[in-house]
């Protein structure tokens, strides 16, 4: 009859510990978890097909059968907002992967090699920085055509300098470290030194950037869609939906644009909080400061 209180499981204690140390990270992760579930469960969550046009039910205000109302095509805004989460992830995740795949090896090589390749890369990045990235993205997507693949590739490549810089800085710090010298002394070929010895120790900073860069990717893709060169309507992409909604804002049908806008803000906020938290946890100096 002894009433012992069961100790909370280890994983729960761990989550509690992380939450205490970085509430930002925990809140960001919770928001993203919500969006991820929304994206995965979209087929079951959406009350209507997000691209089903109901011509007789155009611009219905929120309430009743359509909690978020309907848009100019009579499509259910709630269903479109839910489906939009999948599109946001579908662009952000591959874009960040493209950025990593292009940027990390570049930073790794130039950081280790130094000399003129490094010089050329850094000057190239400086030149790129002169243009606002949205202008570049706009120009490239406008020229290459507004397909999902093009949007992903453009955002990814525009992201790659960030990853290259972070990795390069780490590599330069590691290049002179004793364990790298020890790897050379053991007879490691250069590729092994780069990928086996340096990369696993240099990637942390880049990984900490991924969430923030994903937030940027979501924003840019929405901006492209808003400007009409990204993903095209009636695809349920939040940026495209906001563009549609903007037209109705002046005529009083606020719900068409506001709901996808709120979803976009919340997701970008969640990613940024997660990113900040990750940098706090992964950067030892900031980690010490937050303890």
């Amino acid at each position: 009859m002894s009433a012992t209180v069961a100790a909370p499981p280890r994983w729960a204690l761990r989550i509690a510990g992380i939450t205490r140390r970085s509430p930002t990270l925990a809140i960001g992760a919770a928001i993203l978890l919500g969006f991820a579930l929304m994206a995965i469960l979209a087929p079951w969550l959406t009350p209507y097909d997000p691209v089903l046009a109901q011509p007789r039910n155009v611009l219905a205000p929120p309430g009743g059968a359509h909690p978020f109302g309907t848009d100019g095509n009579g499509m259910d805004v709630l269903s479109r907002v839910i489906a939009g989460a999948g599109w946001a992830f579908g662009i952000a995740i591959p874009a960040v992967l493209v950025g990593l795949l292009a940027g990390v090896p570049l930073g790794l090589y130039t950081g280790y090699r130094g000399g003129w390749p490094d010089e050329i890369m850094m000057r190239g990045f400086d030149a790129l920085r002169v243009f606002p990235s949205i202008i570049l993205a706009l120009a490239v997507v406008a020229a290459a055509g507004p397909s999902l693949l093009n949007v992903v590739l453009v955002i990814g490549f525009l992201d790659s300098p960030v990853f290259a810089r972070v990795v390069r800085a780490e590599v330069i710090a590691l290049r002179g470290s004793t364990f790298v010298e020890s790897a050379v002394a053991a007879g490691n070929p250069t590729w092994r030194i780069l990928f086996v010895h340096i990369l696993p120790n240099a990637i942390q900073g880049a990984m900490a950037q991924t969430a923030v860069r994903a937030a940027w990717a979501v924003r840019i893709s929405a901006t492209l869609a808003f400007l009409g060169v990204g993903i095209q309507p009636p695809t349920p992409e939040w940026g495209a939906m906001i563009r549609q909604g903007a037209e109705y804002l002046v005529t009083g049908q606020w719900w068409v644009g506001i709901f996808p806008g709120l979803a976009l803000i919340l997701m970008v906020l969640g990613l940024n909080m997660l990113g900040d938290g990750m940098q706090d946890m992964l950067d030892p100096r900031r980690k010490a400061a937050t303890r």
Binding site: T178, H197, P200
Partner: peptide
Amino acid sequence: RRLRAEMQMVFQDPWSALNPRIRIGALIAE
């Protein structure tokens, strides 16, 4: 690089002379 099998080095600071992300067994066998 080929000659390094026959000439080796041990460094001063053992805490920083080994790749922190590789297991001891693999480091010895490298």
